[in-house]
Design a protein around this nucleic acid. Structure first.
Lengths: 106, 106
DNA sequence: CTAACTCATAACCATCCAGTTATGTATTAT
DNA sequence: ATAATACATAACTGGATGGTTATGAGTTAG
């Protein structure tokens, strides 16, 4: 399980997020396929995939000379946890406001 | 409403995340208070606050020579939206696995 | 009025990072 | 065997970025 820091950093780059999104939607794909519409060189794509892999967001599977990458959305769990904590403050305040308005109503 | 990109970038820095978390937990605070336990200089803190403000994650209120900053956790909403999309793929696969296991059970 | 305080901005610097090209290592095709 | 393919790694480069000190602008205190 990776830290929120690693995951935030990995997803802070738009190109990386696009790769992750594409793997989520399109399923397992080779480096070559990902390079085609990434608009950057193959080594750049490989580097991004390496970073995503370190964050646990993707997994790879060697098959002959191809490497198939796939998304592992479960790796978003620490981010969900982090967000749930601070989204809670949001609701908390909303609740406070609500109860305040209720009291003002009376 | 800011883009997921701006928000991801803002929160990808640990120092900035710490400031945001502190504002969420501790409520409104001045730059001076935040500087005290940030371990960096006051201008550095101000710059971080500026970035958080651009992302809509904090708001400020001038009062005399002090500036009071406060967290705006609602700004996490676009991040929640983004995550819900891709967390869905997670559950989708989980559901597939589950139904597969169910079928195998019979 | 002057001094001290709070904060923001400017200028600068070191480091990081996303991209590049070049090259190496397997693997498949001829 | 040779050539082509698929990918990873190394070395490099320019620009973004997080930090610093210096300074300015506005506000309170003496």
């Amino acid at each position: 399980m990776q830290t929120p820091d690693t995951i935030f950093k990995s997803l802070s780059d738009p190109t990386r997020r696009a790769i992750f999104e594409r793997l989520c939607r399109g399923g397992e794909q080779t480096v070559w396929m990902l390079t085609e519409d990434a608009g950057i060189s193959q080594p750049a794509v490989s580097k991004h995939l390496g970073i995503l892999k370190l964050a646990g967001l993707v997994g790879d599977r060697r098959e002959g000379r191809e490497t198939h990458y796939s998304a592992k959305p479960q790796a978003l769990a620490p981010l969900l946890d982090w967000m749930s904590i601070y989204a809670a403050f949001w609701h908390e305040r909303f609740d406070h406001l609500e109860s305040l308005l209720n009291r003002m109503d009376q």
